[in-house]
């Protein structure tokens, strides 16, 4: 039960959406873009979200594309995670996405929603960080294309009125060796204790993390340590752990110390396998 009222708008073009946002804002209404809606609805119940208008972007064709364009895979931000999994054009993303929530929920949760949401795991961003994907963002000055690393720092740094339209990933990345492992407190469903996604390119391993810190991240220093093949693997991992961003999550899913323990073994498995390939 959403304990407040909002108006619902369903634009059919990017421009219309942007204009709507401007108009609603000028009317003094707190406005949000709305994709799967799962987070907006469930956090509203708990008074963690408040809005007076929502703009549903699912009717915008660009937000629902799933196609190859030249050397790029273009994914609409409003695609549901299961649509992406089923198309399976980006196996690493399929894998990472398939661990989010549960299957029925993923029929609704969108790629853009997962990345732009408040719930800080944002697991679907990991493959995008690893593949240096670009994001297409719509704002009042039109569309812009940016490297994801530039705009996603812990979270999406969007300006008011902007929304994520598409993700563009270079095709060459899609067939590279990868691993994605989600470890939970216990068994199969739930938030991550740690999620690690990795990709091997030019004999270098790239790694991105969720559940380790209160934000997902990819870190150059961590990758450097992990790829420092002078050292035995264990030392490389230990070094990398030392250079993780802080704070390490210490919460109901697991203590910080235990997370590091799990992370260490997860990294060990991933790197051993990828280096063996």
């Amino acid at each position: 039960m959403v304990p407040f009222d909002f108006t619902y708008h369903q634009p059919s073009s990017i421009q219309e959406a942007i204009q709507l946002f401007q108009t609603l804002q000028q009317q003094g209404k707190k406005t949000m873009y709305y994709a799967g809606g799962t987070e907006i609805i469930t956090l509203s119940r708990l008074n963690l979200v408040f809005t007076e208008a929502v703009i549903d972007i699912k009717g915008i064709p660009e937000c629902r594309t799933l196609r190859f364009d030249k050397n790029y895979l273009v994914l609409g931000a409003a695609l549901s995670l299961t649509t992406i999994e089923e198309a399976n054009v980006f196996p690493l993303l399929s894998k990472a996405a398939s661990e989010v929530a549960d299957r029925t929920a993923r029929n609704q949760i969108t790629l853009g929603g997962n990345i732009c949401g408040q719930i800080f795991y944002r697991e679907a961003v990991l493959p995008l960080l690893l593949t240096d994907s670009d994001v297409i963002i719509a704002g009042k000055d039109g569309l812009k294309q940016l490297p994801i690393q530039q705009i996603f720092q812990k979270q999406m740094r969007l300006h008011p009125g902007e929304f994520l339209v598409q993700i563009m990933t270079e095709q060459t990345y899609l067939s590279l060796p990868y691993r994605s492992i989600k470890k939970r407190k216990q068994w199969e469903v739930g938030y991550p204790l740690v999620t690690v996604a990795a990709l091997k390119t030019n004999e270098q391993i790239r790694v991105a993390f969720s559940g380790v810190c209160p934000f997902p991240f990819r870190s150059q220093t961590v990758e450097e340590r992990l790829n420092d093949r002078q050292l035995p693997l264990e030392s490389r991992i230990n070094e990398a752990l030392h250079h993780l961003p802080r704070p390490i999550l210490d919460d109901i899913e697991g203590s910080a110390e235990y997370r590091l323990f799990v992370l260490k073994h997860t990294l060990f498995d991933i790197i051993t396998e990828l280096e063996g390939e």
């Binding site: 619902y8 809606g37 799962t38 609805i41 469930t42 119940r45 699912k58 549960d102 929920a105 609704q108």
Partner: peptide, 27 residues
Amino acid sequence: CLNGDCGACTVLVNDVPIKSCMILAIE
């Protein structure tokens, strides 16, 4: 649960299972 966690509210929308507690009727 009204929170997307339990599935007791599952219905089909265009033949796809959806947790009806997490979707607006207007959608």
